[in-house]
Simulated assay, not measured.
Amino acid sequence: MFFFSLSLRTRPFLWNISYKPKRTMATKVHAVAQTGFGTGTNDLYDRARPSYPSQSIAHIREVVKSPAPLNVVEIGAGTGIFTRALLAHPAWTADIHKVKAIEPSAGMREVFSKTVADDRATVAEGTFNHTGVEDGWADIVIIAQAFHWCPDYDSASAEFARILKPDGATVCIWNLEDRDGAGWVAQLRDRVESHEQGTPQFRLGLWRQAFDTASYTKLFQPPEEKEWTYHLPGSVEICVNRAQSKSYIAVLPPVEKAQVVEDIKAILAKGDGKVWMDESQGLFEYPYKTLVVVARKNS
């Protein structure tokens, strides 16, 4: 789930503290994102990436102040992983009027259209800064596993405020493997993250710059955060596929990607801190964390 800004003419670009992204008329999508999340990679992404804890989705429902039926805008909807969870969640399913999913990737929109079988949900091309949603339509804006790709936090905050109702809120949610949960998770992340190429990954916290922009401080209240720690079922196949679904791994040359896979298998075979769920089935605990950040619009 990744974005480009029409004003900056870039999709996710290489970005770290010292890196200055190159912005040219010809560059709309960075090569890492264009290839790593491009058409042909999206089925693996949808299959490999985890859904979201039920309690985190219930928490987001409590954020909404307006009465049902509710209008939801989901920016960076990707293949519909969060959308499906939202539509099916008991705290939400009876209260949703419409979900307008916004996603710039054609490949992801294609998978979304195949996997989200609900007449209340539509998907359209758009970005953080240009959603195409009418003024004051949304009760809530939700961004799942995507806001760290935003290239212009100030204009994005202005766009969120524009499409939200007066008592609305923007909510960001992320899943991330918990490196503190087991030694093998830390080792796996170290191996995989060595290929990030400076991309603005969630773990770096660059997205927190949004809360200091002029538009955010004028239009939204200080952010609120809540985190959950838990574990999911893991296996060698799950860990390998999840790693390969990351954009910066997907773009690696075949030989280099194969080496990453072999190294992951070696880490799992060593299994530092591994806790078996069902050893006969090859299932073990996969430690995870989920973070929810709530930004309430000023009245």
Rank of each mutant, 00 (worst) to 15 (best):
F2G: 02
F2D: 00
F2P: 01
F4L: 06
S5C: 06
L6F: 13
T10Y: 01
T10G: 06
F13P: 06
W15Q: 15
N16G: 06
I17W: 14
P21Q: 09
R23K: 12
M25C: 00
A31C: 03
A31S: 12
A31M: 02
A33D: 13
Q34L: 05
Q34G: 13
T35C: 10
T35V: 12
G36Q: 06
F37H: 08
G38N: 03
T41S: 13
D43I: 11
L44K: 06
A48V: 01
P50F: 05
Y52G: 00
P53D: 13
P53E: 04
P53V: 01
Q55K: 03
Q55E: 15
I57D: 04
A58M: 05
H59E: 14
I60P: 02
I60G: 05
P67Q: 12
A68Q: 12
A68E: 11
P69G: 14
E74K: 08
I75T: 04
G78A: 08
G78H: 00
I81K: 15
T93F: 04
K98S: 13
A106E: 15
V111R: 09
V111N: 09
S113P: 01
V123Y: 03
N129P: 03
N129H: 14
T131H: 01
T131G: 05
G132F: 01
V133C: 09
D135A: 14
G136E: 14
I140L: 10
I143P: 04
F147H: 09
Y153C: 07
D154W: 05
D154M: 02
A156V: 01
S157L: 06
E159H: 10
E159W: 07
K165E: 13
D167Y: 03
G168A: 08
V171C: 08
C172H: 11
E177D: 09
D178Q: 00
R179V: 15
R179K: 11
D180T: 14
G181H: 07
E193P: 00
E196S: 07
R203P: 00
L204G: 03
Q209T: 10
Q209K: 12
D212W: 08
D212H: 15
T213V: 11
A214N: 02
K218Q: 12
L219A: 07
F220Q: 04
P223A: 10
E225T: 10
E225I: 10
W228T: 00
W228E: 04
P233D: 15
G234P: 03
V240T: 12
S245I: 13
Y248W: 12
V255Y: 12
K257F: 01
E262T: 07
A266W: 09
L268G: 05
Q281Y: 02
Y288W: 14
K289P: 03
R296W: 10
R296S: 11
R296Q: 15
K297I: 06
K297H: 11
S299N: 14
